[in-house]
Design a protein around this nucleic acid. Structure first.
Lengths: 365, 365
DNA sequence: ATATTTTTGATAGGACCTGTAATAATTAGG
DNA sequence: CCTAATTATTACAGGTCCTATCAAAAATAT
């Protein structure tokens, strides 16, 4: 059944969530600030904050010695107690396993990695993930009870905590990503590109866009979708798999660079104006635009984000891509390079874990 | 700012909405039924229902003489007062203008049409829409004050109440769909295919699916998207315009039938097993699958609905389409023919208008 | 006629919200 | 150093909403 206001306490939960959200973004706020931000009455704010302090989610900040003094009785200041809990986001990739530990505001407290190879067998790869998580927690001085959720990113189609299919790491097909052996911390999993999309919406260029197409361009090309501010996974978790269509030509696209003598060579030659290098990039942009154009025509998004290794090329690749796209689309679309580096996937896993925690913390519906 | 429970009356609105929704689906319900359906306490239900009766949204049903009698004091029965308001949905098409008048439950009380041609100038076409709406209202015995909203469907890209671009009816490009001259009734507009998608989700085969790709297949081919149970329009209202991509081949697809001697001829020949007719249909299905495949790979939807004139062909077209799609997609997708006829667009416009009314009626967020 | 069943009406108790008035803790200025 | 102005805190009154419980009302079954 739908939302029914059965319990007057619903109002309290709603207001607590609003206060928490307000504190979330800011550093320290006074009660008066909170009243203004939420337009809830002062009496209520006071009660709510007291309750949140009891729960350990908010703490009073001691007045700083060098704080700017103003007239009138000084207000107490409150802040979100970021250390009330922590999450870990782990990127289980072909070449590395990266774990990022963060507090509830998303502040990174530790970051730890191990090297693996595409040939590393499944169990070893998953064991590496467990080990990296444990090490990161220990180094951050955290126990199992401090951990509220774990976010896991893996390549391939990920659905219901499992890798349904992975072409990049065939051995991972069928792998269970619930990482047993780490206590009963809830584990949420997702596809790497989709989680990078989430990261881009959280801290990257897509911060203010609700409908985003994220394109990971590197050795392989893949797509993540954010629709209405939420990740769109699809019925089988296979949304964005436009590259599967052979006529799009994404499987062979990167070979253009290999044939030239490697991606590095193309970039350096292009920078000095080599016609052949520029033509190679143009051809690659055409490949890219074939798939991105289909997705953009389907969704008419606010923004296309170019991520992955090739996003570091910046305008060298963005410009021909945009040129190609403008010939395909009804309306021009904004294309921006990713501002997050190679850690974006693990960062997205952190965000996924935080989403889970927030749903529990200030979940209402 | 987000939802804040500032007012205790929020609970009442929430509960009123829950009661209204419960009454919406059912015919007549007793207070006890409502208590069970909403799990709100009886006292509250009583209050809420009294309030809704005051507002004119609910009425008490007189006990029917032939009602099945049971032990105990007979309960009063309540029903949603469907006639508390009406809406009109109007489809402004190339060949017809169709207005459907419905009450708040969506019961159709009148349906009225006028014939136009693709050459009818813009002002005349819009005037025809106004006239048809007025006639339909008069014939339903309704005054301007009974009308709560008007939904308008037009072909082409529709955004913010205007036709941004129409390839089917170029003269309509730039048209203002707010239909001035019908009082101050709110008018909401949308693209015809998108609204047919809405209709299909409301009363058609897509009733239980949240992520739906609707394909209108006829003289022209177009796509409507429902994502997470909501229509996806895109930044410029141009979502689903995959057919714009020339390589998809949708502009010329229907010509295959014309070259054969008309769509009718293809169908009748195919039914008696003509190889040439079947091959023509296969080729058309391949055209269709090229675009639908791209959309389905992008979105991984629950369901693909085939609408438009060719949906009447049923399995003759569905089967080759499904065959083609299965070769393109990672996961098989359910493909169903539309169950609604040519009125689906106007019906979707009715639903759009009802959505608007409901947002106002039991809008909370 | 009496018992049983179900609905209805009325009352009490508690949680929540808002707004106002009194009180406390500062700074600015004479 | 003292007073006025300013801002924050605390306490209280008034109102809406919810739930739970219990007696009264209206029907059927025996």
């Amino acid at each position: 059944m739908s939302l029914t206001g059965q319990d007057p306490a619903l109002l309290r939960r709603l207001n607590a969530a609003a206060v928490l959200r307000a504190l979330y973004g800011a550093d320290e706020l006074t009660l008066t600030h909170l009243v203004r931000a939420t337009s809830i009455s002062r009496s209520t704010i006071e009660d709510v904050v007291a309750g949140l302090i009891d729960e350990g989610l908010v703490e009073e900040a001691l007045p700083a010695a060098d704080a700017p003094r103003s007239v009138g009785r000084p207000a107490r200041r409150f802040r979100f107690r970021a250390t009330a809990g922590h999450v870990v986001g782990v990127d289980i990739g072909p070449h590395k396993v990266l774990a990022i530990t963060a507090d509830l505001t998303g502040n990174i407290v530790d970051s730890r990695r191990t090297t693996v190879t595409p040939e590393t067998p499944r169990d070893e790869r998953l064991a590496a993930a467990r080990t990296v998580i444990k090490r990161s927690l220990r180094s951050a001085g955290l126990g199992a009870s401090d951990l509220r959720a774990i976010g896991v990113a893996a390549s391939g189609v990920v659905d219901k905590g499992r890798v349904v299919m992975s072409s990049r790491l065939p051995d991972m097909t069928g792998a269970d990503l619930s990482l047993a052996g780490l206590g009963d911390t809830p584990v949420v999993a997702g596809n790497d590109t989709k989680l990078a999309t989430l990261a881009e919406h959280w801290q990257g260029v897509a911060r203010d866009s609700a409908d985003v197409v994220y394109v990971h361009a590197g050795r392989s090309i893949s797509v993540g979708l954010l629709l209405g501010g939420r990740l769109h996974a699809g019925r089988h978790g296979a949304a964005g798999e436009i590259g599967v269509m052979h006529s799009v030509g994404w499987y062979e696209a990167f070979d253009r660079f290999q044939q030239y003598g490697g991606a590095e060579a193309v970039l350096t030659d292009a920078r000095v104006g080599s016609d052949q290098a520029l033509a190679t990039i143009d051809a690659f942009a055409t490949d890219l635009a074939r798939g991105v154009g289909a997705v953009a025509l389907t969704l008419d998004p606010d923004l296309v984000v170019l991520g992955g290794g090739l996003s570091a090329w910046g305008s060298v690749l963005i410009e021909p891509l945009q040129r190609e796209l403008s010939g395909l689309l009804l309306f021009p679309v904004r294309v921006e390079p990713s501002t997050l580096g190679a850690d974006s996937v693990a960062l997205g896993a952190v965000r996924l874990a935080l989403n889970h925690v927030e749903d529990e913390l200030f979940g209402v519906s």
